[in-house]
Nucleic acid binder design. Sequence first.
DNA 1: TGTTTTGTTAAGAAAATATTTTACGATTTT
DNA 2: AAAATCGTAAAATATTTTCTTAACAAAACA
Lengths: 195, 195
Amino acid sequence: MAEFLDEDAKQSIDNAKDLVVDSLAETMDLYGVTRSAGTLYGTMYFEGDMTLDEMRDQLGMSKPSMSTGVKKLQDFNVVKKTFRKGQRKHTYVAERDFFRFFANFFSYKWEREVDMNLEAIRTAQNQLADIIASENLSAEVIQEAQETYDILEQSKPYYYWLQRLAAMVKSGEIFDIIPFYPMNEEEDYGTGEQR
Amino acid sequence: MAEFLDEDAKQSIDNAKDLVVDSLAETMDLYGVTRSAGTLYGTMYFEGDMTLDEMRDQLGMSKPSMSTGVKKLQDFNVVKKTFRKGQRKHTYVAERDFFRFFANFFSYKWEREVDMNLEAIRTAQNQLADIIASENLSAEVIQEAQETYDILEQSKPYYYWLQRLAAMVKSGEIFDIIPFYPMNEEEDYGTGEQR
DNA sequence: TGTTTTGTTAAGAAAATATTTTACGATTTT
DNA sequence: AAAATCGTAAAATATTTTCTTAACAAAACA
């Protein structure tokens, strides 16, 4: 009888975990990470180091899916390869500290945003500058080119700002400025180091 | 001949815009917004107020697509309905200030993340607490429940932190702390108000 | 070095998502 | 009040993405 209760309890624990795993997956879905990659992350979050085969068993999916899923998670630095003693299979571990998850994930995305858009703006502005400098064009057309050029120019401060934010988040400096716990006048949690 | 040059230039201007629109769309894709919604936003960014029909003409897509696209963008507060004098059709305008775009977009997402996950954690912890409190269960099972409970408990500070960050971003307070332009010792750009 | 095992690539199948067409209800104009 | 126009829902279609099966390449072991 006791074994039966134990089994029930184990199922209930798994159910509780699944609830959170699903929620984590939905969260990541919110940020453009596929649900299955999110589920994989959530599973690794609870299980700790895992091999691809263990993931496959746990999630009931194919091994290539696990491989690509892990790769995707590695791309934005929330999963890392680990070494398990005398283990032939590779093992992987998920970032368990959500502060670091946040820092890795968003600094990666924001850096990409900045690079991508500044590059597009640079190219577009060059094209527009040619038009603006050109003779033999109607004032109307030149004005439109100039207006477009200016709109792009005005957006630059945002990207420079985002660049600095990304750097502060990546380095952990943001956690000095906005500490883990609300600050009192008396106390000061900022330490300069990342958790 | 001059008209021909003008036409060329106009095309070149459109091409320059498209370059940036595509980049904006790719950026939004990065954050889980579909490419077509991103393209729609980018188009509105350059064009200003638009009706659904104007969007349809500009993008060569169906009207219902525009309708759902606009709705999606409204969901995270980067497009708003506007009123154009004596205009029967509804008009919509995209948020042109990227600082505000950032603030609206991420505060929305982060708030959702916090609410969703704290709710899941609450439910899961209740379930686990029942097991921990229960008699007639093996020490092993109770310990696993306790460990899971603790993992969840430890994640809470992150969500509280994210909640505060979201509030600071939403209110614009973040721009006092991390100003639009890098700060010198002499100068202080923080004003307490949102741009 | 040959054998086994592991991780990844490629191609095809399945599922999910986006898009359009059609139809309807609501609002505005005449 | 009737007619026209607009926005959105529902259903059907098309497209994209995801996932799996099967084959391959690389690494570890004997």
